[in-house]
Every structure is written in C-alpha cells, then in structure tokens.
Amino acid sequence: MSDSPTILEVEGLSKYFGGIKAIDNVDLDIRQGEIVALIGPNGAGKTTFFNCLTGIYKPTAGDIKLSDPRNGKSTRLNGKKPNKITEIGMARTFQNIRLFPTMSVLENVMIGRHCRTKSLIFGAITRNKATRIEEAQIIERSYEILKKVGLHRQVNEQARNLSYGAQRRLEIGRALATEPFLLLLDEPAAGMNPKETEALVALIREICAEGHSILLIEHDMKLVMTLSDRIFVMDYGKKIAQGTPVEVRENPAVIKAYLGEDVDA
C-alpha cells in the first residue's frame, strides 16, 4: 500500500469558530486504495474536518490537495465550492443523516448522478434522444448501486420511511453515484445493530475492493480496528496520534484521550 500514490494531502489545517479551535493544525494523508479511520472523542473536530474537506466550511488555515488517481491530476481544494469538490471526485455521507426525505429511494441515488450527466432545459422539454439515453443510464446505474447497498426492493419507497440502518446505506449509495475516488463516511455505523454493522463492514470492503479509497469517522472500535489500514486520532482539535491499528491501540496518548487520566484501567 505504501507505494500507491497519495490522493489526499492535508497540511496544517485549522478551523476556528470564534475562540474555539475546532481543528488546530492537523496533517493527514490518504493513499490510493486505503481505508483510513479518523477517530477521537465527541467534539474532537472530526465532523468539522470533513466539512472543511468538502467545502461546506472555509478553513481558517491550511492546505488541502486532492489528486485523482485515474488521471493523476491534482487540485487545491481551498475555496472551492462543495459541488465542485464532489465533481472532482470526493463524496461524503453525513453524521446526522441528510437524505431527501420525501423523494424516493431511487431518486435519492439519481440525484447523485447529477454531476456526471448534463441535460438541461432544452433536453428536458424536447426529451431528445441524447436525453432519453442519459436518463435511462441514470436509472440503470442508480438501480445497480441500490442492488449493491441492498435497497433495490425499496426503490419507490420514500427515503424517510426507511429504517435507520437502511438510510445510512442509502446515503452511501447516493455518494457512490457521484463516482468518487475518495469516499468520506461520517459515523456510518451509528445507530446500527450488530447484524447491520456486519453487513456494513462487508459493504465497505466491497466498495474499497472496487477501487474507492475511504476515509471514515467511527466510534465502533471493533469496526475501526478490523477495517482500517491506518488510523488518525484527534482530540480537542489536535491530531494526537497516527499509525496502524496496533500502533494506535498501544499509544499512551490515545488511551489517555479515551479513558481520561485513568491510564491503568
């Protein structure tokens, strides 16, 4: 893995909210094909880190560089709009699920195809051949993705009627529809039962095997330890450790952050 190209390079990223240093000078890198986990106690700044990467927040300082492994083109993400960043090839899911609640399951995924298709007013009105072909492809691709995340039996169900675990999987499906080379998952297993979590682990492995690299925030330590190639640990906005699962597990700073002062416990 160590010889694959770096696809995401974050240097000295900081984000302040007034006096709060939600992220304080954090470096992070991801190489092609890796599953990297970002862990840390609640309020450590993980979600804020995702929001800075995806352009929802403007970082106070730092550099974010994304390189497409498919063509080697690299782009500086600072100041780019969220939709541009998705177009370049980085998609995400949300910790507090943000589906389109009254749209159907299929349509939610079809929205993900938006940035890879282009018909506009003229195509919509005339419904010319190119538009019809494009629309059919959108439907076909979306259906395939739904099969992958196991929701193809509920295509016409409104997204808000899905179970919690299914909604999380739909978010992953929707993000996949944008054809990202890097997928950011914010607590994908939150609220899932053990069986659902197991299915999720299999799904993440499958997605990774298909060539997507993954950066994931997760509190479920078992999941993190089994899935990740490398782990970054944050606490109070600072990066306090990084390394393989084994290294991180034995790192005293990490144990301290998770268990407080009581290191022996």
């Binding site: 709009k81 177009e87 609640p101 890879r116 929707r174 993000a175």
Partner: peptide, 14 residues
C-alpha cells in the same frame, strides 16, 4: 432535492 436539503444537494454535486 434543493427544496428538501440544500447542503446535501451541494454535497451531491449540484
């Protein structure tokens, strides 16, 4: 989609 959730919309590349 824009009516339902603007941020999610942008994150989906719209």
């Amino acid at each position: 989609a824009l009516r339902e959730d603007e941020i999610a919309c942008q994150a989906m590349g719209i």
